[in-house]
Simulated scan of single mutants.
Amino acid sequence: MKGPLFYAKILLFGEYGIIKDSKGLAIPFNSYKGALKTAQHLTGEAKKSNENLLNFYEYLKTLDSDLVIFDLEAFKNDIANGMYFDSSIPQGYGIGSSGALVASIYDKYATDKITVLENLTRDKLIKLKAVFSLMESFFHGKSSGLDPLNSYLSLPILINSKENIEATGIPSQKEGKGAVFLLDSEQVGETEPMVNIFMNKMKNEGFRKMLHEEFVTYTDACIDDFLKGNVKSLFGNVKNLSKVVLANFKPMIPNAFHKVWEKGIQTNDYYLKLCGSGGGGYILGFTEDYEKAQKSLENYKLEIVYRF
C-alpha cells in the first residue's frame, strides 16, 4: 500500500501576521513530499512514525466536532498493520512536515471529505481550513490549518483574512536572474515556543502598533506585488519587511544569522525573512541576482524555490 503524495509548502508571506488577520500567500513546494506506506517490519524512522500515528489516532478519537467524521476503525487497523508516513520533508524546518501528514490522514480517513476535484467555494475552503486547524493542533498546540490545506490542495493559496481565503494563480517562473530561495540554518526550530513568544509580545501596545502599521502593511504590499509580477516594487517592500522583522522578531531569528540578515539589507545582495515560525529550520531569501546572493552566502546551503 502506498498513499497519494502530499507536498511541502512555503508560506512566502504572512507568517505571524495571519494570526492577526494580515494577508498570506502559501505555495506548494514539490521538492519535498510524503506518503502513507505500510511495512511488515518497522525500524528507525518508520517505527517512530507508526507510534506517532497511534498517538494521533488517540487524539482524533477525542475530537468532539461536527466538522468532520473519520473512519477511526480503519485508521487503527492500518496502524496495527504497520502503516507509517514516509516523508522527505524535514521536521522543524517551517515547510509543513506535519501539514502533509495531516492532509494524508484526512484524505484517507475522512468519511465525508471535500475533494480537490469539487468546485472549491470559499465556504468549502474555510471548512477545510477549520478541520485541518483542529487536526494539526495535535502537533503545534495552535494551528491555522493553512499548511495541511496547502498540502491537500497542492495549489497556491491566498489568505485575504481569516474568513476569506482562495486558491490563486501565481505568475509563471521566468529564467531571470532573480530568485526566492531557502537558506538552511542547519538547526531545528519548534513552532509552539515561537508562537508563545509572539503571543507574549502581542500584549505590548507598541508591538501591536508596529505589527499593524508596518509588518502587515509591508506583507500585504509584498503579496500584491508578487501576484501582479511587480518585481521592482516587490524588492523594495521585501527590504522594508526584512528590516521590520530584524528589529522586532529577533528571538525568532537564530543568533548566528542576525549579522547575515543585516548584511543583506546593507549590501542589497539579498533580503531575508522568516519561513514559518522561525527559531531555526529554513530562512526565506529574496534576491534580484541569485549568483550575487550565492557568492555573498557561500558558506551556506541554498535551494531555489522560484525564479524571477
Results as ranks from 00 to 15, higher is better:
Ala26Thr: 10
Ala8Val: 03
Phe257Gln: 07
Val68Phe: 12
Leu302Tyr: 06
Lys142Trp: 12
Val188Gln: 11
Ile165Gln: 04
Ile95Phe: 00
Lys201Ala: 10
Tyr290Pro: 00
Arg122Phe: 10
Tyr59Pro: 00
Tyr306Asn: 06
Met252Cys: 15
Ser88Val: 09
Met199Ile: 13
Arg208Asn: 13
Thr168Met: 09
Ser143Met: 13
Thr217Val: 11
Lys273Ser: 11
Ala130Ser: 13
Leu125Glu: 04
His258Tyr: 13
Glu298Gly: 00
Lys177Asn: 11
Leu25Val: 00
Tyr59Val: 04
Phe198Tyr: 13
Lys113Glu: 12
Tyr93Gln: 06
Ala167Leu: 09
Ser161Cys: 05
Gln187Ile: 15
Gly82Cys: 10
Ala293Gln: 12
Leu302Trp: 13
Leu155Arg: 14
Lys162Pro: 02
Leu72Ile: 02
Asp21Ile: 08
Ile170Asp: 05
Val305Ala: 02
Asp107Phe: 04
Ala74Pro: 01
Lys76Pro: 00
Thr62Ile: 03
Thr43Gly: 00
Ser104Gln: 04
Phe181Glu: 04
Glu205Leu: 14
Thr62Asp: 05
Ile197Cys: 01
Ile10Gly: 01
Asp64Cys: 01
Lys259Leu: 11
Asn255Val: 14
Phe29Val: 02
Leu42Ile: 06
Gln40Asp: 11
Val131Cys: 11
Leu155Val: 07
Lys209Tyr: 13
Thr191Glu: 07
Glu291Arg: 05
Asn196Leu: 11
Tyr84Ala: 03
Thr191Trp: 05
Asn237His: 14
Pro4Met: 07
Ser161Thr: 14
Gly44Leu: 10
Pro148Cys: 07
Glu58Leu: 14
Ala179Val: 05
Lys9His: 06
Lys23Ala: 01
Met202Phe: 07
Tyr218Glu: 12
Lys47Ala: 12
Ile114Gln: 03
Lys243Trp: 14
Gly281Trp: 14
Lys295Arg: 12
Tyr57Ala: 01
Leu67Ser: 08
His258Leu: 14
Gly236Phe: 10
Ile95Pro: 00
Glu163Trp: 06
Asp225Asn: 15
Asp64His: 07
Tyr32Lys: 08
Ala293Lys: 09
Leu120His: 11
His140Asn: 14
Lys129Thr: 08
Leu241Ser: 05
Ala39Val: 01
Phe235Ile: 08
Lys61Gln: 11
